[in-house]
């Protein structure tokens, strides 16, 4: 049985989405993408450097194989994010956008109100909107209500690798949103165990950049993350055992050597 991830009518086999930032070289990024098995790949939108010719990221990403998801990283207001999304769409690859509205306060935590505002406008303009959001379930519900194609709550702040600092809050989002649109845990994942936990909780996918790009061996870590996501997904489908505060032996309590 194939376990497909469906977003806005498009299906994917992989539940691991990968960012393309922070790699030492484009070649290393390409090898990590390959090792991860990811199909959705995020990119940023920036001014072309007119002072010197720079290598093109897209020369290292096979667009027949990977689905490019442009982000609005760096945008601090709804207006900036909408402008960047329009530019991304004008590049002619798709009308999907990973919406990020992040105030300049060094926390890299999203502005949920501006994110909902921007999402509303972009959905009305025909975009498929995948918003980066907080781990607040009411905000997630608002994003669902304005027509977002996913919700993407953080595990912890971008680039920290702290893992899932509030699994109970992610669990609540999954309870409120799950089954309506995919829940993608984005940001903060540091190790495959974090990715596995997100999937065990019932997340539909995870998005990882720094934990792979900044690992000692990014290609090996990309592979490890793919296995972590798969293990977590399988565990979720298998339904884990109930937790108990009382111990229970796994071996027979009768027939012990020397029993009277």
């Amino acid at each position: 049985m194939t376990d497909l991830l469906t977003i806005a009518g498009r299906t994917f086999r992989s539940r691991l989405m990968i960012g393309t930032g922070k790699y030492a070289t484009f070649q290393q990024m390409r090898e990590a993408l390959e090792a991860s098995g990811a199909e959705i790949v995020t990119v940023a939108v920036r001014r072309v450097n007119l002072d010197r010719k720079e290598e093109s990221l897209l020369d290292y990403i096979d667009l027949n194989r990977y689905f490019l998801l442009p982000n609005t990283a760096g945008c601090q207001t709804a207006e900036e994010a909408i402008r960047t999304a329009r530019l991304a769409r004008a590049a002619g690859l798709s009308d999907w956008v990973k919406l990020e509205v992040i105030p300049a306060d060094n926390t890299l935590l999203p502005d949920p109100i501006a994110t909902v505002e921007a999402a509303k406008t972009l959905v009305a303009e025909g975009f498929v909107v995948l918003p980066y959001t907080t781990d607040d379930h009411t905000v997630a519900k608002r994003l669902l209500d304005v027509g977002c194609a996913t919700v993407m709550p953080f595990g912890s702040a971008i680039g920290t690798g702290l893992g899932l600092t509030s699994p109970d809050r992610l669990q609540r989002i999954i309870e409120v949103i799950g089954g309506q649109v995919p829940v993608v845990v984005d940001a903060g994942i540091g190790a495959p165990s974090d990715a596995a936990l997100a999937m065990e909780l019932g997340a539909d996918a995870v998005l990882i950049n720094t934990a792979i790009a900044r690992a000692g061996d990014p290609v090996q870590m990309a592979r490890a993350m793919a296995v972590g996501v798969e293990a977590g997904r399988m565990a979720y489908q298998a339904r884990r055992m109930e937790k108990s505060t009382v111990a229970s032996p796994s071996s027979p309590t009768v027939g012990r050597v020397g029993d009277k």
Binding site: G19, G21, A44, V48, L68, R83
Partner: peptide
């Protein structure tokens, strides 16, 4: 925001403010 074809065909005017962007690595 203009698609490439529309921009390619337009005649630029004095004082025009142009932004040209591309995709770069990001998360």
């Amino acid at each position: 925001v203009m698609n490439r074809q529309t921009f390619a065909a337009c005649t630029l005017a004095a004082g025009d403010v142009i932004e040209i962007v591309r995709f770069v690595g990001g998360g």
